[in-house]
Nucleic acid binder design. Sequence first.
DNA 1: CAAGATACGTCAATATGGCTGACATAATTT
DNA 2: AAATTATGTCAGCCATATTGACGTATCTTG
Lengths: 157, 157
Amino acid sequence: MRWDIIELLFFAYRDFVGDADHELEAFGFGRAHHRVLHFVHRYPGLKVADLLDVLRITKQSLGRVLKQLLDEGYIVQKTGNNDRRQRLLFATAKGEALVAKLAGLQTDRINRALGDISPEGTDTVRQFLRAMIDHDDPDKVLETILKPGPATAKEQA
Amino acid sequence: MRWDIIELLFFAYRDFVGDADHELEAFGFGRAHHRVLHFVHRYPGLKVADLLDVLRITKQSLGRVLKQLLDEGYIVQKTGNNDRRQRLLFATAKGEALVAKLAGLQTDRINRALGDISPEGTDTVRQFLRAMIDHDDPDKVLETILKPGPATAKEQA
DNA sequence: CAAGATACGTCAATATGGCTGACATAATTT
DNA sequence: AAATTATGTCAGCCATATTGACGTATCTTG
């Protein structure tokens, strides 16, 4: 049994999301809002259906959170060009600012953790995390992440 | 920004806990039960207060799930020797069996993920996860985990 | 063109797992 | 004897998830 790694994952993830959780409180948002905003920002033009695949929640659950983000101007919708039923999602400047703030906190933690680790070690960590993910039925976003080569995601800052 | 690692952590953890989630459904339990049972099994004789520190939830929240685990015979309480106010917690055989089943699923995933990674690489992964954890105010369990050297936790199987 | 499928939104009800505040009891400490 | 500590419990609230049903606009297909 890999007790050590099981527990390390638990604590590492707890503290990792804890960074963002604190900041989110000030905005009256929860983790759900963060996840939605994050993926919309990273994959601009994401459809509602894509988001449901990625987050693995129901449309009803997403609806509530998404509505708030739309109402408060963190996200905007645009009707799809090819298919006008689709509502493509984009983060506004306001939304981008919040995502950047939250990702900054998490990036700081990651950089601290990688401080004593070589570039090769960092690749090993990345390789491990990738391999922990189910590969059988990747959705659109996961495909992008798992696919090696040039990122299709929003340009890296 | 470490967008890649942020997202890999999200997906990796999602699928990692997903393994156990499915199994837990069959027992009518949720993630909360798993966490409690896991730590009680791993650190036998844990006090209620310790558990609250580790899980970072309130005593009322813990109360509900703990009561179920006690009622259904997955955990037993024993009065503390030195301090008779304390209720020391222990997993029963039934509890151990469930923990083992769940940890087995997660261990399988970890082993798969470490498949192509050398022993040194595995240490790097461990080092990274450790360094992701807050070290400022470690509780009793975290101390054990973060402390190098012989484990004080339940003997490794 | 009509029928059906699809993308999305929404209403209603429910469950889980967090939370706060208040209060009770037993045991230990001062 | 009084205060503190460890635990339990009651009552209610909130966030986030669920299922099922239904509505509407739009695209696709026979």
